[in-house]
Computed example of a mutant assay.
Amino acid sequence: MATNHISTKWLGGMSFESNNTSGGTFKIDDGSSEDPQSFRPKALMLSSLAGCSGLDVASLIAKMKLEVSDFHIETMANLTEEHPKYYDKVTIEYHFHGANLNEAKLKRAVDLSIEKYCGVMEMFRRFAELDIEIIYHNE
């Protein structure tokens, strides 16, 4: 069984520094520091979701030899009103740009990520309703 281990150190106030498994570090705070280099915990969750699925899709784009000039993911989430506040509904938009987009294969790449490969997606599925949208920008 694989285990990830990170360390998170209090920097004082409402700021922490955490490492990743590659040894890099990043700051986490509650937004009060106004440090543009700091991340808020719940926003990091959305970045992790998009990053996990995006890595899957990018790998599949390469394997399928698809022509895509640009690809980005927009992630929007609804936060509950009561504490503990959590995301109960998440919309994930996959945007593909290109002159010769193979929509069927791109949809297959997204489907494989959300149904089979992305572990973060599976974690989110345990507590949130997921709405997946694929948007093709033919240029």
Rank of each mutant, 00 (worst) to 15 (best):
S48A: 14
K27L: 11
F71K: 14
R126L: 15
D111E: 13
P41K: 11
M121L: 07
T21F: 10
D111S: 07
S33I: 03
V110D: 03
I6F: 08
F16G: 06
M123P: 00
N20K: 06
Q37Y: 04
Y94N: 06
K65L: 02
S32P: 05
G51A: 07
G31A: 07
S15P: 02
I132F: 06
A104V: 10
E17R: 10
E81K: 12
F71W: 11
F26N: 06
K116F: 04
L66R: 03
N19T: 10
K63T: 00
Y94F: 14
K85T: 11
A104L: 07
E139A: 14
S69N: 13
E133H: 05
V90H: 07
S53F: 01
A104N: 06
E82P: 01
A77T: 15
M45W: 01
A109P: 02
G98A: 08
R40N: 13
D70E: 13
E81V: 15
G31P: 07
K9V: 06
L66H: 03
K42T: 13
R126N: 09
A109I: 02
A43I: 14
Y94D: 03
I73A: 01
T8H: 05
M123N: 07
D111Q: 10
F71M: 13
D30Y: 02
C118E: 00
I73D: 00
E122F: 12
E115L: 02
G12V: 10
L79P: 09
S38E: 02
A99F: 02
V68D: 00
N4T: 11
S48I: 03
M64N: 05
G23H: 07
G98Y: 05
S59V: 10
N100P: 00
L44K: 13
V57F: 01
T8R: 05
N78K: 12
M64D: 04
E17P: 03
K27P: 03
L46H: 10
N4A: 12
H137Y: 13
A2H: 14
N19D: 15
C52E: 00
W10G: 07
C118K: 05
R108W: 04
K27M: 10
P36K: 09
K42S: 06
